[in-house]
Design a binder for these strands. Structure first.
Lengths: 224, 224, 224, 224
DNA sequence: CATGAATGAGTCTTCATTCAT
DNA sequence: AATGAATGAAGACTCATTCAT
């Protein structure tokens, strides 16, 4: 025990690692606030530092350079999003309708469908054309989600005796619809709320799967 | 000699105005090429000048400052878009189904639905959160288009005896769907072509308006 | 003629090029002053700008970046040096002894052998180990001078019936001796003047070529 | 437990001092490696720490600041050099010729005349113009060596009946010659080896002291 | 003793903007 | 009408130094 007292005068390794993780999150969150407030172009290491209440150097210390930091921010955003829909999916049970409902509801979950998040999404997507890193991160996470939607659609079609070939197109359509609603909500801030977005999506899903129309209306429009 | 010195440089007023318009367009198009190639953040007055084959000063000379130029570029992009769908609408005849078909087809018209245009749209929308000017321009043009879609929907619903109250939600959904398909096409470049986008939209429209399912399938999936 | 009045409203091309050359020299000379005053490590674009009485941006405008500027400074220094010894060589006439005398005298010419120049030489040579650019520039110019010395030695040896094989070693030795005297003059500033350096070199040359001892003594120690 | 906590960390004073000396040398040698690899300008406390395999803070802990560390490195370099020539001198015996030969040989001793050492020398000399500390250290050690060379020359001249007044000039010339050969070896790395350098020096010494020509040739060119 | 997180002044570089020509 | 030289205010990034542990 005396030995350990001597050999570990510094902070325990674990505590240090935790502290680093905390700092990284602190900086990432400050960056998000900055992007929301100043846009991606208007976000500098200075605005990030100021927002984090830290000195100019820390961001570089923890992320090596601005590009890495921004990439990490996008990843962080996707992680939150993925966590949300994956949890919803896990809690939805086995019925394909319920899974689809869960995925759509997750898309308009307040934790995900809020003004700040939307700014982040479109800010990064806007630069994805010129920044391979952003495009790559987006592609990876988007693919995972597409698989989930596509799976639910496949099962749903199987249940009602329709050809599985439609699944991909339907999944793409559903994904596109919710992304488009996000864009509306983002561009004309405040004019579309969660309820309206869910109602519109419900209408299209009900039309696309008339056999489950009732389920979609009930599952998406009702509730909270 | 003195006479010629005075009279020659003073070009007729009209010719001068035309020249100015030509230069402005030249610079706007150079800017678009630059945004496509370097992103909005990577577009500087220098990249614009280089792309236009003109000197550093011209952009400022004709647009006073960078922000105005970029605003003008967005406006230009919207003008081309608006021109496309308005012409399509005008040629569509009076039937609401045909008008809706025309509007959707216009959205995936090669002049509008190409990789470069998509980069422009999402680049500007990405910064719209932090730049009121972009948001304002977008809002103005988007509203005009929404009115057109909404009108077609209203008439269509009236024709099949469904409540007009649905029109706005349907219009929003259709708009969102096509925007979402644009986003797919933009982010995963090359994986979605005009045909597929039209087919997906047709499927949803057919489902939403079963009475005109045939029309939408025929009008959107067939043809070129 | 009226046409030319219209087509060339800007400054004539030639005048502009001259102006650019003037600015470049102005900045190079400011850089030299800065290196003399602050060392190479202490020379920043800010010290250069201040020394030149210009704004921070100009140096970059004319030299693209700091490294290029510093490379150009070294080249400039070598150009002056080369010009000096080449002119001396040209004026020396055909006698090998005279050519060797001229080359040595040029090395201690006040235009070349002054405190400021020495600082520049050793500052750049000091970094040559880590900067291939400097090493490359030095190598190129040093080679040219070595050829000249070597040629004179070869002819001199031929004149007195000694083997030509000695030439390279003698040339290297002479070059090394003058460089070493430069180092002395540089490190212990003020303790060695032109006269002393010439006298020491004369002594060694006289010893190395006893047949021309008188010539070297007379040619190097006398005069101004 | 309390007892061991207190007694164990308190190492004996002597052991502590030895450890400190070891650490200092470790850091100095790391600095030398860094200067060789990155140049003086490219050497930071970070490169030094990395090279030493120690944490960022140690260098400051042991040397208070970077300047002091670098000064210590130069001193260390001079110490090795001085040790080499002083030992050679001590082993040379009393004959002036032998002392001079020993001094020259020491200058091209593999321990001293190697690529890395040359980088160090010229790196520091390059900054000596702007850093009084380096100039001062150099001056001190150079003076000691000059005294040694000068002494040997004086005795040598006395032995052959030539005026002692020549000694200083000859000593300066010899010193300059070897320094100049070092510069050649440094700038055009790999093109001059120990043998060639010794041969060139031998030739000049033989010429300068014809009475001892044989001795110099034998003493410098033969051997290993 | 030793670590390495944190700071902030300073560096190079970029770039919108001005302006003389 | 057009050029492009010149400016200077940021921007990202570096690094010597400090300091709590």
């Amino acid at each position: 025990m005396a030995a350990s007292d001597i050999s570990v005068p510094t902070r325990p390794r674990k505590e240090r690692a935790e502290n680093a993780a905390k700092r990284r999150r602190q900086i990432i969150e400050a960056t998000i606030r900055s992007v929301v407030g100043n846009g991606l172009a208007g976000t500098t290491l200075a605005t990030v530092s100021a927002e984090a209440g830290l000195s100019q150097g820390v961001a570089v210390f923890y992320f090596h350079n601005k590009q890495t930091l921004l990439g990490e921010v996008l990843r962080h955003q996707y992680e939150i999003y993925q966590e949300t829909w994956q949890r919803a999916l896990a809690q939805a049970g086995g019925e394909p309708v319920d899974r689809l409902i869960a995925l759509v509801r997750a898309d308009f979950d307040p934790r995900v469908f809020d003004a700040q998040s939307l700014v982040i999404w479109y800010a990064f997507w806007g630069e994805a054309g010129a920044r391979p890193l952003y495009a790559q991160i987006s592609g990876k996470y988007d693919a995972a989600r597409f698989v989930a939607i596509c799976g639910a659609c496949t099962d749903l079609l199987a249940g009602i005796g329709r050809p599985a070939a439609e699944a991909a197109a339907l999944a793409t359509g559903i994904d596109a619809l919710t992304d488009g609603l996000w864009l509306r909500a983002y561009l004309s801030a405040g004019t579309m709320d969660r309820q309206e977005a869910l109602a519109i999506t419900a209408r299209f899903l009900a039309a696309a799967f008339p056999e489950h129309a009732e389920d979609f209306i009930a599952g998406l429009c009702g509730g909270d």
